[in-house]
Each structure stands twice: as C-alpha cells, then as structure tokens.
C-alpha cells in the first residue's frame, strides 16, 4: 500500500514580502507594552504643548526631564538612599518578625485566637493617621520611619504565610507524624516549603508597600528622602521636580518587585506556577 504523503510548500515558492510583514508584526507584538508607553508619553507631551497647560498644573514629559536635571545627581542619590534605607529596614524587620510569627500563629490555636484580632486591629488602623503619633513617640531619626514602614508591610506577610502554612496537605502532615518526626522538623521540612509560593506573593506586595510606607513617613517628618523631596518641591510649586521624584519612586518599586521575583526564580524555581516556569 502506498503511504500518503503531504508535500510542504517550499520557502522559495513563497513571495518575499509576507515574510517581512510577519517579522514586523512579531516586533510590534513583542514591543507592544513599550510602544504603548511611548505613545502615551507622546500624547502627553503634545497635549501639554497644544493646550499650553502650565507646568505647575501638569508638566509635560520634557519639562519633567528638565526638572530632574535641575537637581544635582548627588542630591538625587541622597534622597533615593534615604527612602531606600528606610524601606528596606522596615521590610526586613517585617520579614524577620512576620514569618516566625506566622509559624507560631499557624501552630497554636491559643496564639491565633489571642494575637490575630490584635493584628487585624493594627491593620485596620489608617497608617497615615497613626504616622504623626509614631513620630512623636519615637522622636527624630530613622526609627519612626522604619516603624511606619514595618507596620504597613508586616500584615500581608503574616496573613499570607499563615495561609500557606495551613494549606499544607493533611496527608503530608500525617506522613510526618507517622515518622515520629519532631514538630520543628515538620515546620522546617514540610510546612514552610509548602508556604513558599504564598510567602513570595506576600513579599512581592510588601516590597512595594515598603516604598509607600517610607514615603508616608517622609511626608510627616523628615529632612531627606523622595517623599520629603516631593512635599518640599510642591510647596514651592516646583511640580516638574515632584513628578521626576514620582518617576524615581515608581522605578524603585518596580526594581524591588522584580528583585523579589528573581530571588524566587533563582532559589525556589519549583514554587513558580507552571505558566511561569
């Protein structure tokens, strides 16, 4: 019996231009997010010029760049460092305290019944309203700012870690108990690894919250930092500078967010959802 054959069209049979069209489409598709952003900037710039919007209301991108350049690099780096320092200290503190606390909450009914309501109350308190009080209590310096950042980043880490720890399959815990392993090993070898995806999703959210916390604290009391710089610039109607600082803040947040994702990818590749592997 003759086997059926399917003949494929040879590439030389095809005309050249559809190939190029396809390549162009591919480039457009790949760069779509970038092109969209550039287009938006262009509309913004043109809109500002066309309608002659004053720069203290809405500065055009070009005015923002000029505003950014009018401040010395040294001054920028000083403010960035101040904000970053406070954010990362508060964030680190939230991780160091939050994860062990979550382990305790997930393993003790008494603790979760007594501490959890307090945590919810803290979380329900508007942090912006508490910030001035914290500044009064903790005085000048980094301490009140770190405390405010900590308060804003801490809750998601605890809640998400507890959820992750409790999501451990019950059969896994039975396996552990049937081996007569210690409770500590059960947490370390089974519960915590199962919570890794949950912990990292909280770490990603919290790292951007850390920047927000630092900025809020700087609005209340500070002599440097990007939040302080924005408050300072706007009080002198230097809106383009304030916008430039905003851009820096967004960049910082994005970079930190990506760093957390990268850490997960490098250290715990198995914990990524299948779509991201």
């Amino acid at each position: 019996m003759k086997s059926p054959t399917i003949s494929a069209p040879r590439s030389s049979d095809r005309r050249r231009w559809p190939d190029m069209g396809r390549a162009l489409l591919k480039v457009l598709d790949r760069g779509a997010p970038l092109f969209a952003s550039l287009l938006l900037l262009l509309i913004w710039e043109l809109g500002c010029r066309l309608f002659q919007v004053p720069s203290y209301l809405l500065p055009a991108p070009s005015a923002i760049v000029q505003g950014a350049l009018s401040v010395s690099l040294e001054s920028w780096l000083g403010h960035i460092w101040a904000t970053l320092r406070v954010s990362l200290q508060g964030y680190a503190l939230a991780v160091i305290i939050g994860i062990p606390l979550a382990v305790a909450l997930a393993n003790s009914r008494l603790l979760s019944r007594t501490l959890y309501p307090q945590l919810v109350i803290i979380q329900s308190t508007p942090i912006v309203a508490v910030a001035p009080i914290i500044v009064v209590v903790l005085g000048a310096g980094d301490a009140p700012r770190v405390a405010i950042t900590f308060l804003i980043t801490f809750f998601p880490i605890v809640v998400s870690t507890v959820t992750g720890l409790l999501a451990t399959p019950p059969a896994m815990l039975e396996l552990s108990r049937s081996l007569g392993a210690s409770r500590l090993r059960e947490v370390k070898n089974i519960q915590l690894p199962f919570a890794v995806p949950y912990i990292f999703s909280a770490l990603r959210i919290s790292v951007t919250l850390a920047i927000i916390g630092a900025v809020v604290a700087e609005f209340v009391a500070a002599e440097d930092g990007l939040g302080f710089f924005i408050a300072f610039s706007t009080s002198f109607f230097k809106v383009p500078q304030a916008f430039a600082a905003l851009g820096v803040l967004v960049t910082l947040s994005l970079v930190l967010f990506q760093l957390v994702s990268l850490t997960q990818r490098l250290l715990f590749p198995w914990s990524l959802p299948d779509a991201e592997k």
């Binding site: 552990s176 089974i190 198995w270």
Partner: peptide
Amino acid sequence: VGIVFQQPTLLPWLNVRDNVTFPMKHKHG
C-alpha cells in the same frame, strides 16, 4: 509500619530519589 496514602503525597521541591529517602532525612536529619 510503612504507610502508602491515597494521594502520593510527594514533596514537589524534591526529586524522586530524595522523596524516597525523605522519611530518613525527616526523622534523623
């Protein structure tokens, strides 16, 4: 006593070999 559960209950972060030796690792470190 050894137990086989309804679900395989394997640890997703360990490879097959380490899953088989996991009871020892878990019990004795």
